[in-house]
Design a protein around this nucleic acid. Sequence first.
DNA 1: CCGCAAATTTACAACGTTTTAAATTGGCAC
DNA 2: GTGCCAATTTAAAACGTTGTAAATTTGCGG
Lengths: 350, 350
Amino acid sequence: MSRIEKPADSDPARNVLRTGKPTLKTIAEMTGLAVTTVSRALGNAPQISETTRRRVHEVAAEIGYLPDRAAQRLKTGRTNVVSVLLDPHEEILGFGTSIMHGLARALQGTAYHLIVTPNFLDGSNVDAVNYIIRNGMADGLIFSRTEPFDPRVRLLLENGFPFVTHGRTEFSTPHAFVDYDNFAFAYAATRRLIVKGRRKVTIILPPRRLTFYQHMLHGFMTAVREAGVAYEIPEALDLDSPADMIRDYVRRRSAEPDPPDGFACPGEVSALATITGMSDRGLSLGGEYDIVAKQTSRLLSQIQPKVETIYEDLTAAGEAMGRLLLKRIGGEPIEDLSILQSPQFSFPTP
Amino acid sequence: MSRIEKPADSDPARNVLRTGKPTLKTIAEMTGLAVTTVSRALGNAPQISETTRRRVHEVAAEIGYLPDRAAQRLKTGRTNVVSVLLDPHEEILGFGTSIMHGLARALQGTAYHLIVTPNFLDGSNVDAVNYIIRNGMADGLIFSRTEPFDPRVRLLLENGFPFVTHGRTEFSTPHAFVDYDNFAFAYAATRRLIVKGRRKVTIILPPRRLTFYQHMLHGFMTAVREAGVAYEIPEALDLDSPADMIRDYVRRRSAEPDPPDGFACPGEVSALATITGMSDRGLSLGGEYDIVAKQTSRLLSQIQPKVETIYEDLTAAGEAMGRLLLKRIGGEPIEDLSILQSPQFSFPTP
DNA sequence: CCGCAAATTTACAACGTTTTAAATTGGCAC
DNA sequence: GTGCCAATTTAAAACGTTGTAAATTTGCGG
């Protein structure tokens, strides 16, 4: 016993007194074990005897120990954070919030937290993605509204950064995604209008640059061609257009010759706008015209049961994306990491 | 050369090569200064000479240095995180997302990140608050839908934890909040209905347990009493009721004797539901009845311009809450840390 | 009861930052 | 040049965790 002498400060309560927060050291002192051992025991490492493993877990539970995320993150380089890119277009009708609730549910019980990175820049926000990759702000990324050659996807693929998109792309390298089968939606919606005996159908499409524009268009056209029915596609309008613009367009068009009498509306806002536009002309839903709409909340059908709706469950989508991302972060192969949601013809029981 | 020998590895590029991320050490090696000095220079500490301060900043900018959040957090105990409690009731119509965009704007340019803590438990989620306080998951908290003696507020006050609510409470200890002047809204809305010549007014109130139930009721009753007009208040219904329940109620009531003809609707969903219920009876807005509604998005007035609306700017509210929280975290006194938003009679130009 | 491998536990060093206290430098009066 | 104070820079420790490598204990055949 020569040189070194422990600082004589082995009061087990000391480090707890400082912040009130128990650490590995606290448990170590309480059990008489080394910090390393405690760490391993909690991590269920194989080389720890069952006896001490159990003992450590007991004590940890008793004093309510939770690992310090900052320390873990510093040491391991993993952030235990999943970031979702919030798009300004998702402000209305709870798109963002539904997805986030789903995500939160998938992350529930895991070590992962959900952080929101808003999209300030217009267009597709490559900068935010870059920031997150370069500074290791998260272990994985989630975002929506993909383009066929989405620059965010390209960037993430190039860097091997885990992510899941809502929507597909056309890159040759596959990546994880969850998407709604918008082809099936558009096809089914148009079919229904035709079956109802509508003579001329129309559809309000997403902005052209988004991948699902093609899917929608394709579904619509397939149904139209099969049935040989008349159709038209408004050029100056898309799903992102403000409601009043859609309403005014519908009102104007219905006064011109040969107007459509069957509307496929892939969004609740566009459906409401269409109803208002038509009823301004005295035309009644289910009478002179019909609508089949995509619905992501219960709102539309509760307000206006005469609208036929097909559901897209965004909360489920969020949950699926969360699960996929966790797998992806865990390093699973890409192959089965994609999901195509089928249109739902009745509201899911929650 | 006996036992220990420094790894002879003083290559300035080494630590960069490992992860690709520059650290204080990188800058230190590049400038020939000590890590401590670099840290201080970047923190603009007073004892650093202007020359080196500038030099360090230059180099840092050049190599794109960003401090490691985990290390800072571990060392200082500050998380640089603000958490928002997401309420399930905010799923529809982008309440949550609007607020979050506002919050994000307020946090923009600061070191703070926004993390979402969802509300899984029913009722007011004290558990989530507890978790955040005990484990130091954030430096500040934001949530909405307060009750007069909100248990979350009590808990936070007791622990001296910084927070800002959307909505007031009735605790004698003051705390930071942002609230909409719902008294003024209800009063103005009811006044307008009366001025339009409506004989009997009604209002759909929030759930009784929420603080702003009282404010709404009070504003409504004040206008009613001043004018001596007839009124009624539906008992079985509140703003959280599903849209179809509201719609059915309105439809049923309008067929009974002495129905109301002026509706104050403090939410877009309730307004839409009311319109549908009335038009099912063949009654027309602006003709047999009127609605004055609160609007938090552009949706309602774009779809149905005949509805008179009064705006509540939730994005602005979020931004204000963010700013207040930052001040509060900075330790400013509570007195001027509360804001009452006035109703807006025209949509704010963004 | 010795030796040796397997089982279990341990010390130590790191991750990148800030804080504390100490060391170095420079300026200036003597 | 010497001494001393202020200005500036520095080394070392710490935050709580995990990975590496080494130490200790245990079991068991001889």
